Amino acid sequence: MPSRLPLTPHGKQLWDWLIGEGQKEYIGKPHPWTALYRFLIKHGVPPEQAEGLATNVLMATPAGRAAFKAGHSGHKTIGQRVVEGRRKK
């Protein structure tokens, strides 16, 4: 589902800023998704919406997608953990 941030009060301005000049708030950070999530909460986005919006904002640009991938490179899915656990037995 696309982000609804541009539809919220002042959301279009925040959205435009986050996919443009505001990328410095999360691009290049060790944990870009977390940095963006905290930034959104700080600017009044409810936590339950900030999770999805952080992902949507990161996925909105090539630089954001690269940051998202870099920030998740060491994480394993639940499926990967299950398979590895079965192999150890």
Results as ranks from 00 to 15, higher is better:
R81L: 13
D16H: 08
Q49H: 08
G85N: 12
K42Y: 00
R4G: 07
K69H: 08
L7A: 15
Y37F: 09
P47C: 02
I19L: 15
F39I: 06
R38L: 02
P30E: 09
N56S: 15
E48W: 07
A54C: 12
S73A: 14
R65M: 10
L7G: 12
T34Q: 14
A35R: 12
L7Q: 15
A70M: 07
Y26S: 06
T77P: 04
K76Y: 00
L18D: 02
I78Q: 14
P9S: 10
T8V: 06
R65Y: 01
I41F: 00
G44C: 08
A66R: 15
G79I: 09
M59I: 04
G52F: 02
R65V: 11
W17S: 11
T77M: 10
W17V: 04
V45S: 11
E84P: 07
I19P: 10
A35H: 06
I27P: 07
G22M: 07
E51Y: 01
L5A: 12
H43F: 05
Q13D: 03
E51L: 11
A66L: 09
A67L: 08
A63T: 00
A60W: 01
W17E: 04
P62H: 03
S3I: 04
L58M: 15
L5R: 09
W17L: 11
R4D: 02
A63W: 00
G52L: 09
K12H: 08
V57E: 00
H31I: 08
E48G: 06
T8E: 10
K24C: 02
L14K: 13
A35N: 06
F39V: 06
P47G: 03
V83Y: 15
